[in-house]
Design a binder for these strands. Structure first.
Length: 646
RNA sequence: GCCAAUAUAGCUCAGUUGGCCAGAGCAGCUGAUUUGUAAUCAGCCGGUCGGGGGUUCGAAUCCCUCUAUUGGCUCCA
C-alpha cells in the first residue's frame, strides 16, 4: 500500500500501481470524467500512469492550465496521426502545446499543403477522436528509439533523440501514431470533441533560418463544441479592436504603396492624438529634469563606424546616401544615440552636471524584412520618444528608478494593467556576441536586477535577449489577439561612452567615463498608439481623444448657436467639432457614437433660449442639460484626474 | 527574406463551371426634408477588377511574374 496526499492534505491509502484516474473515480465519477492529467510529487503525470510510491497528487481538468496543456499536446498527436493517415510518408518535427492550442511542424515532402486542406484533416481528427484511442506510454532505450525512427525514416526525431540521455526516453502510442514524447497525455482521444485548425505557416526546423523550413499547422481543440464556438466569437470580437481596422475607421493613419511599405502616414486625427501623447510625456520629462535636443535624420557613416552600429548593421540597413560632389556617405538615422553622444561630447562636463538627460522625439529608419512589417507595430520609419541619460556609475540605480517612475506613470494614466516586464541579459554561453568588457556587463546586469528586486517588480529574466551593447529592461503589453509587443525600454550602455570617448571631470580633477542609459517609455509613437488603440478599442481617454465633443444641432436653424458653443469650447481648453448636416438627430447621434466621440452636445430651441447644451455621453446616453461652464468644468475635472501625477 | 493565403469603387463586400455595357450597401455630391437622443427620402458621381505578361474567339475569373497586404517562421540597434 502507498499513501497519496491530496491538495486538501487528506491522505488516501491505495494499492501500489493505482493511477490518478483510479483515485479520481474514488472521489467522484464526475471528477473522473473530467481528469485530463495529474501531477505526482510535482512531476507532471498521465492520469492513467500508475503511481508506485508515496506521493502528493494533484488532478488537473480543463479548468487548469496543466489540463489544457495535456489536452492540446494530445491534440497535436491526434493531428499527427490524422496527417500521417492522409499523407503517408511525411516526417514529423516537434508538436507542442502553446498558449492557445498547439501546433505540429511537419515535413510534407512532396505534398503541397494549404489552408484548403485543413478541414479534411479536422474531419479525420474528429473521426479518430471518437475511437477514444488511449495514449500508451513506453519507456524505451536510446538504441531502440533510434532504430524505430531510423526504420521510419524520420531524421528530425533522430536528431532530437541524439540529444537525449539513455534511460530518459519515452514514446507515446495512440492509434497508429507513435511519437517521441515526454508526456503527459489525456486518458484517451475521446475528450477532444471540437477541433479547429487555424493556420498553416512555414517554420524553420529548430528555429534556424539556415535549416529546412517545415510546414507548421496550428490548431486548437475543446472538450465541448460550444466552447469552440465561443472561442471563435471571441476571436471575431478581438479582430474588431485591431488597430489597423480602427485606424482606418477613425481616420488616424494610412499607408500608401507610393510612399512605401512600412512608412505610415498620420492623418489629422492621428496626428492630434500623437501630439497629445507627446505633450503629456514632454511635461513629465520636463519635471524629471530632461532637456530637449534635436538631431538630423541622417548621419555620416563615420558616426556609425564609431558607434559600432555600422559593423553590426551596416549591411542590413537602408543603403547609404551619398553626396554628388564629395562622395560622402550618410546613413538614414537608425537610432538617436550616436547623435546624442556627439551632443554630449560638444563640450567638457563636470561631475556636478550629471546626470545629463537629453530627450528627443527622434524619427529613425530601419530596414525591416518585408515579411515582418505589421500595421503600426512594426514599421520601417518610426519616432522614438528617446532620451539618453549620461551619469556616473553610482547614479545608475537612481536614474533607472526615475525612468521606471515615468513608465509606470504613463501606463497607469492609460490604464495599461497587464504589463509584462522582461529583463534581458547576455546569453551566458555566447558572450563573444556582445561588445564591451566582462566587468562592465557584470555591473550593469546586476544593477538592473537589483532595481527590479528593490521595486518588487514582477519581472521575468531572459538570457540571450540583451542588445549587443548592454542589458535592458522592457515593458510589454499584449495586443487585441494576445501578441506581445515591446513598448517601454530601458537599456544600460557602458559601450557607447567608451567608443565615443565620452568623459566628465570628477571631484578628483581626473577624467572619468560616464555611463549611458537609453530609454523610451512609449518605445515608439507608432507602436504605442497601435497598442493603445487596441487596448481601449478606439475609445481613447478623454484627455487624449482627438475630438472630445461633437455638437449636434437639432436642425439647421440651430447651426448658428451650435457654432457659438463650438467657438467657446476653446476658452475652456476643450476641443470638438460640429455636425451641421441636414440630418435627423437620431442619425447624428448614431454617427457620433460610431466615431466614439466622448461627449455629444445637443442643441435646439430649448438650449438656445436658455444658453445651455443637452449632454449625451458616448456609450452611456443622456446626462441632462447643463450650462457650458458647468459641463466644461466637469470634463476638465475628469481630464485632470486622468493625467495627474500619482 | 522564407512558407501559406489574399488583392473588385474612398470603405465593406457580391460576381455561379471563362461569355453581352462589372454589381450592392455605406461614404461623397445634388435636391427635397427642418428634424429632440443609435440610420429621412430621391437622384447622381464613382472601377485600366493591384501592375505587367501569357493562354483563349473571349479573362475580374485560368497560368506566369512583380508589387502590396494578412497569418506564421526568422529577424528586431
Amino acid at each position: 500500500m502507498i499513501n497519496i496526499t491530496l491538495p486538501d492534505n487528506s491522505v488516501k491509502q491505495v494499492q501500489e500501481g493505482t493511477t490518478p484516474l483510479d483515485i479520481a473515480k474514488d472521489i467522484s465519477e464526475g471528477l473522473a470524467r473530467n481528469v485530463l492529467a495529474a501531477s505526482v510529487n510535482n512531476e507532471i503525470w498521465d492520469a492513467t500512469r500508475p503511481i508506485t510510491t508515496d506521493a502528493t497528487l494533484k488532478l488537473y481538468t480543463w479548468n487548469d492550465t496543466e489540463g489544457k496543456a495535456a489536452m492540446w499536446h494530445s491534440s497535436a498527436h491526434l493531428m499527427a496521426e490524422a496527417v500521417e493517415l492522409l499523407y503517408p510518408g511525411v516526417k514529423f518535427g516537434i508538436g507542442p502545446d502553446i498558449e492557445n492550442g498547439f501546433y505540429y511542424d511537419i515535413d510534407f515532402m512532396d505534398y503541397e499543403i494549404s489552408e484548403k486542406d485543413l478541414s479534411k484533416i479536422e474531419k479525420k481528427m474528429l473521426e479518430l477522436a471518437r475511437e477514444k484511442q488511449t495514449f500508451v506510454r513506453e519507456d524505451i532505450s536510446k538504441a531502440d528509439a533510434e532504430s524505430y525512427f531510423k526504420e521510419k525514416g524520420d531524421e528530425y526525431k533522430l536528431e532530437l533523440i541524439s540529444e537525449l540521455e539513455d534511460g530518459q526516453i519515452t514514446l507515446y502510442k495512440s492509434g497508429s501514431f507513435t511519437d517521441l514524447c515526454r508526456g503527459p497525455h489525456i486518458p484517451n482521444t475521446g475528450f477532444i470533441k471540437a477541433v479547429k485548425l487555424t493556420k498553416v505557416a512555414g517554420a524553420y526546423w529548430r528555429g534556424d533560418e539556415n535549416r529546412k523550413q517545415l510546414t507548421r499547422i496550428y490548431g486548437i481543440t475543446f472538450p465541448k463544441k460550444k466552447e469552440l464556438d465561443e472561442y471563435l466569437v471571441l476571436l471575431e470580437e478581438a479582430k474588431k479592436r485591431d488597430h489597423r481596422i480602427l485606424g482606418k475607421e477613425l481616420e488616424l493613419f494610412t499607408f500608401s504603396q507610393n510612399v512605401g511599405q512600412g512608412l505610415p502616414l498620420w492623418l489629422p486625427k492621428g496626428a492630434e492624438l500623437r501630439e497629445k501623447l507627446e505633450q503629456f510625456l514632454k511635461k513629465v520629462q520636463k519635471k524629471a529634469g530632461y532637456e530637449p535636443v534635436i538631431s538630423p535624420h541622417i548621419g555620416n557613416v563615420n558616426l556609425y563606424k564609431t558607434s559600432g552600429h555600422y559593423q553590426k548593421y551596416g549591411e542590413e540597413s537602408f543603403r547609404p546616401i551619398t553626396t554628388p560632389v564629395e562622395g560622402e556617405e550618410f546613413f538614414l538615422k537608425p537610432m538617436n544615440c550616436p547623435h546624442h553622444c556627439e551632443i554630449y561630447a560638444s563640450r567638457p562636463h563636470s561631475y556636478r552636471e550629471l546626470p545629463i538627460r537629453y530627450a528627443e522625439f527622434g524619427t529613425v529608419y530601419r530596414y525591416e524584412q518585408s515579411g515582418e512589417l505589421h500595421g503600426l507595430t512594426r514599421v520601417r520609419g518610426f519616432t522614438q520618444d528617446d532620451a539618453h541619460i549620461f551619469c556616473t556609475p553610482d547614479q545608475i540605480k537612481q536614474e533607472f528608478n526615475g525612468v521606471i517612475d515615468i513608465i509606470q506613470h504613463i501606463f497607469s494614466a492609460l490604464d495599461f494593467k497587464d504589463v509584462i516586464i522582461q529583463i534581458s541579459l547576455r546569453d551566458p554561453d555566447n558572450k563573444e556576441k556582445y561588445i564591451g568588457s566582462e566587468e562592465n556587463w557584470e555591473k550593469s546586469e546586476r544593477a538592473i536586477i537589483e532595481v527590479a528586486e528593490e521595486r518588487n517588480l514582477d519581472a521575468i529574466i531572459e538570457y540571450g535577449e540583451a542588445a549587443f551593447y548592454g542589458p535592458k529592461m522592457d515593458f510589454m503589453v499584449r495586443d487585441a489577439i494576445g501578441r506581445k509587443w515591446q513598448l517601454g525600454t530601458i537599456q544600460v550602455d557602458y559601450n557607447l561612452p567608451e567608443r565615443f570617448d565620452l568623459t566628465y571631470i570628477g571631484a578628483d580633477n581626473e577624467k572619468h567615463r560616464p555611463v549611458m542609459i537609453h530609454r523610451a517609455p512609449f518605445g515608439s509613437m507608432e507602436r504605442f498608439v497601435a497598442v493603445l488603440i487596441e487596448h481601449c478599442a478606439g475609445n481613447f481617454p478623454l484627455w487624449l481623444t482627438p475630438d472630445q465633443i461633437i455638437i449636434l444641432p437639432i436642425s439647421e436653424k440651430f447651426n448658428e448657436y451650435g457654432k457659438k458653443v463650438l467657438n467657446s469650447l476653446d476658452k475652456y481648453g476643450l476641443r470638438g467639432l460640429i455636425d451641421t448636416r441636414s440630418e435627423k438627430t437620431g442619425r447624428k447621434i448614431r454617427d457620433a457614437e460610431l466615431k466614439k466621440v466622448p461627449f455629444m452636445f445637443i442643441v435646439g430651441e430649448k438650449e438656445e433660449e436658455s444658453g445651455t447644451v443637452s449632454v449625451r455621453r458616448h456609450g452611456e446616453g443622456d446626462l441632462g442639460t447643463f450650462n457650458l461652464e458647468e459641463i466644461a468644468a466637469k470634463i476638465n475635472d475628469e481630464v485632470e484626474r486622468l493625467t495627474e501625477l500619482k
